[in-house]
């Protein structure tokens, strides 16, 4: 048995609209900062940073980014450019932090 449908109030409707827009904005604008944050945590945990370790950390951060859901539907050129961009961000980050 189906109960009576309760119409949404204006406030509920607005709330749903806000959530929808928020999700849409998140889809449109991807923020790479969390990946950098994780790279930093890895670096801090490692305590001592040798060139080999630095490369390994960089690989780890870039690999994590490359396997993220946001990249799955991209074409090869977009993927390549995004990975290169992210790699340069990680390079900048490490050159400032280390």
């Amino acid at each position: 048995m189906v109960g009576n449908k309760v119409p949404l109030t204006d406030a509920q409707r607005q709330q749903r609209r806000r959530e929808k827009l928020k999700k849409q904005a998140a889809r449109e604008r991807f923020n790479p900062a969390p990946y950098l944050g994780q790279a930093l945590r890895d670096l801090v945990l490692a305590q001592e940073v040798s060139p080999d370790l630095l490369l390994k950390l960089k690989q780890k951060a870039v690999n994590r980014f490359a396997s993220s859901e946001t990249l799955l539907k991209e074409g090869p050129s977009s993927k390549e450019v995004l990975i290169r961009y992210f790699s340069s961000l990680v390079d900048d980050f490490f050159s400032k932090e280390v």
């Binding site: 490369l55 390994k56 690989q59 780890k60 870039v62 690999n63 994590r64 490359a66 799955l72 290169r84």
Partner: peptide
């Protein structure tokens, strides 16, 4: 070069580039 070159290599439990 660098990290981008090594993307297909699995590093410390991270996933490969699909």
């Amino acid at each position: 070069d660098g990290a981008v070159a090594s993307l297909p290599v699995k590093a410390d439990g991270d996933e490969k580039l699909s």
